[in-house]
């Protein structure tokens, strides 16, 4: 069920992010969402892309260390309280969130999408589904 995210190691230096996006652009990889975490001298770029394995392979060939990480993508209504609703469910299920970021949804669908990296993605998905929220699969991801 869970969606695979590509996590990429980059140095925290001017132009390094651009070098990586260049690789993706040249290989016609489309990004659905991107998030950047910066630590001491390095960063981890987290990507949701249309073709996970292609992206991972072209990045590896270009010399980037990267890993596939399962994440939970939950849909909620694009209205006040939307995120809160998801978090209520995760709190109730005692799920710990490591990080999260948003996907810019289309206005017309009236949906907003949040990406979560959690300690137990299966439990998180089960709890969200049980609460009547929509959890996206990899295939559904590529359709939004």
């Amino acid at each position: 069920m869970s969606v695979k995210q590509v996590s990429v190691f980059v140095e925290d230096k001017p132009g390094k992010l651009n070098e990586m996006t260049q690789v993706l652009a040249e290989n016609k990889i489309n990004m659905r969402a991107v998030s950047v975490a910066i630590a001491d001298g390095f960063g981890i770029i987290r990507l949701l892309v249309d073709d996970v394995y292609e992206a991972s392979t072209v990045l590896k060939d270009a010399g980037y260390v990267n890993k596939l990480t399962p994440v939970v993508v939950a849909a909620t209504s694009d209205a006040p309280g939307g995120l809160n609703q998801i978090l209520n469910v995760l709190t109730e299920a005692k799920i710990n969130i490591e990080y999260m970021y948003a996907i810019s949804g289309e206005r017309k669908t009236d949906k907003a999408y949040m990406v979560f990296r959690v300690n137990d993605h299966k439990a998180a998905e089960a709890a969200l589904t049980k609460a009547g929220l929509t959890v996206l699969s990899g295939e559904e991801m590529s359709e939004i």
Binding site: S7, F9, A39, I44, V65, K67
Partner: peptide, 18 residues
């Protein structure tokens, strides 16, 4: 140099190893 073996998606884990 970072290696595939030492890389993880978790920033705090990488920092801990550092």
């Amino acid at each position: 140099e970072m290696t595939p073996e030492m890389f993880t998606d978790n920033v705090s884990e990488i920092r801990k190893r550092q």
